[in-house]
């Protein structure tokens, strides 16, 4: 694919053409390349974009809204959604197949390349493992509640569920739960993402707050955990508190970006407890964020998530912005 500069491209940021027609549930960059971006949507499509050329390369249509997607490798991608089916797609041949089902919607899909396993978390309160080589389910593991968010740190699987439970599993030994925790935040878990260095995870709640937690249960390590407020705006003396919907890590710097329903993206240095930068306000809620593997690019999905009891009169279009980030924005000072 020739690299074509899109006309609308501004200095560091541009909007992807051919965006999904409905809510964006997840964006993910391909492993090892900032060129390809995968996107699952409530419009029942799974789309692959060539970010550099700003074109959509492939689109798969499924039977229902998709809630998550993930790359296995640059060619093979996985997705799951409301219909509870786990789908595997081959980008080169543009073929897709249903690998298996959950009894309720699949909320999360994660892939461990090292272990050749796909992990799905569902509202049926189970996690299932799937062998990518045989496309078969290798186990079903009951979780305390509906799975809301999941992340992998090496062989560790961190599952965040309803009722603020956080269970930590070891993919090599799923016989028992390694750790049963409760979220340190007092409100519903919205998203969680493991550190690239696998030592812990960052968890966000609907109440404009983010917790940095460590997996090592020893008291010295646990002492380092903390939480902070963010994605809040004071309006007329009332503090508006927004859900923090997305977290993504910069693989090299261990810094992370958070996106909230306030339409803002912040980048944090978790180690030094500092905010590195805040981008301009996007048209609506940040539904998903993804750093490219090399940390050069940030994909920002701005997509209304129906946080309000009464939806606003006009809902901004669902859009994906691709932003080239600088060291100044992402590197600890």
């Amino acid at each position: 694919m020739a690299t074509v500069e899109a006309g609308s491209r501004s200095s560091s940021e541009f909007q992807l053409k051919n965006g999904p027609a409905d809510g964006i549930s997840r964006v993910r960059f391909a492993p090892n390349s900032p060129q390809f971006l995968l996107c699952s949507s409530w419009d029942s499509t799974l789309r692959l974009y060539d970010v550099q050329a700003n074109t959509m390369r492939v689109k798969f249509l499924s039977g229902g809204p998709l809630l998550d997607c993930a790359f296995q490798d640059p060619i093979h991608v996985w997705s799951g959604g409301l219909e509870g089916q786990l789908r595997s797609a081959d980008i080169n041949s543009s073929t897709e197949s249903i690998v298996g089902t959950h009894e309720n919607a699949i909320r999360c899909v994660e892939v461990s390349q090292e272990l050749n396993v796909v992990v799905t978390g569902s509202w049926d309160s189970t996690v299932k493992l799937w062998d990518t080589r045989t496309n078969s389910c290798t186990g079903t593991y009951t979780q305390p509640e509906k799975v809301y968010s999941m992340s992998l740190a090496g062989e560790k699987l961190v599952v965040g569920t309803a009722s603020r439970k956080v269970w930590v599993w070891d993919l090599r030994n799923m016989g028992y739960v390694q750790q049963k925790r409760e979220s340190s935040l007092k409100f519903q878990t919205r998203f969680l993402e493991c550190f690239p260095n696998k030592q812990g995870f960052v968890l966000s709640s609907i109440e404009g707050r983010v917790a940095v937690e460590y997996l090592d249960p020893s008291p010295e390590v646990q002492k380092r955990k903390y939480a902070f407020k963010c994605h809040r705006v004071k309006e007329n003396g009332i503090e508006m508190i927004y859900p923090v919907n997305a977290i993504t890590f910069h693989k090299d710097y261990n810094t992370f970006a958070t996106g909230g329903s306030d339409g803002l993206v912040n980048i944090w240095d978790g180690q030094h407890k500092k905010r590195l930068c805040q981008f301009h306000k996007y048209p609506t809620s940040i539904a998903s964020l993804a750093f490219s593997n090399d940390g050069s690019t940030l994909a920002i999905a701005s997509s209304y998530m129906h946080e309000h009891e009464k939806p606003p009169e006009s809902i901004p279009e669902d859009a994906i912005y691709i932003r080239t980030v600088t060291d100044q924005e992402t590197k600890p000072k």
Binding site: R190, I241, Y242, D262
Partner: peptide, 16 residues
């Protein structure tokens, strides 16, 4: 304060 979230303690996706 006002949390911009529906009062039911279910995820936005479930609600949607």
């Amino acid at each position: 304060t006002r949390i911009v979230h529906p009062p039911e303690d279910i995820s936005l996706e479930e609600r949607r």
